[in-house]
Amino acid sequence: MSDPKDTADISALSFEDGLKQLEAIVRELEQGNVPLERSISMYERGAALRKHCDTLLQAAEAKVEKIQIDKTGKAAGTTPLDPETT
């Protein structure tokens, strides 16, 4: 049921934009006045948005964990994220 264009559209979204779209879908579905077929497609898009946002969040968390601190306690730089460790 998902359109491949929707997936490409989602992959280009920032975390914040993806989260806004996901919140809008949740609000609309919670109102309960959406036809069944539309509810299903909205749910599928919401699941894809959640997965995308989760991936972006995990990448950001991993990058933050890689920040190096110098002897004075200040950020001295970052090390490249090693995909093998995630």
Rank of each mutant, 00 (worst) to 15 (best):
E30F: 03
L29P: 02
E37C: 01
Q68S: 12
D70T: 04
L81K: 00
T85H: 11
I40H: 12
R38M: 11
G73Q: 09
Q68A: 13
E28Q: 14
E23S: 05
S2A: 15
A59I: 04
I69Q: 07
S14R: 00
S41K: 11
L81G: 00
K74W: 11
K74I: 10
L56I: 01
T85F: 11
T79D: 09
D6N: 12
K20A: 14
A8W: 08
D82S: 06
A59S: 08
F15Q: 08
E84T: 15
L13P: 00
M42T: 03
E28M: 09
A75I: 08
P4G: 12
H52A: 09
V64P: 00
A48G: 02
E23D: 08
L57T: 04
L57K: 13
M1K: 12
T7Q: 13
L29E: 06
D9R: 15
M42S: 13
P35Y: 00
R45K: 15
L36C: 09
G32L: 02
E65N: 07
I10Y: 05
P80A: 08
E23A: 07
L19T: 04
A59L: 07
S41A: 09
D6G: 04
P4V: 08
E61G: 02
E84Y: 12
E61Y: 03
E37V: 05
D17E: 14
S41I: 09
I67Q: 12
V34M: 02
S41Y: 03
L81N: 01
L57Y: 12
G77L: 09
S14M: 01
A60F: 10
L13F: 03
K71C: 11
L13H: 00
A62T: 03
K51W: 03
Q31C: 05
K71S: 15
Q58T: 07
H52Q: 06
T79S: 10
R50D: 07
N33R: 11
T55W: 11
G73I: 09
K66D: 08
D9H: 12
A47P: 00
A59N: 05
L29K: 04
F15S: 05
A12R: 10
G32H: 00
T55H: 11
D82E: 08
Y43Q: 15
T55M: 12
K5M: 07
T78E: 13
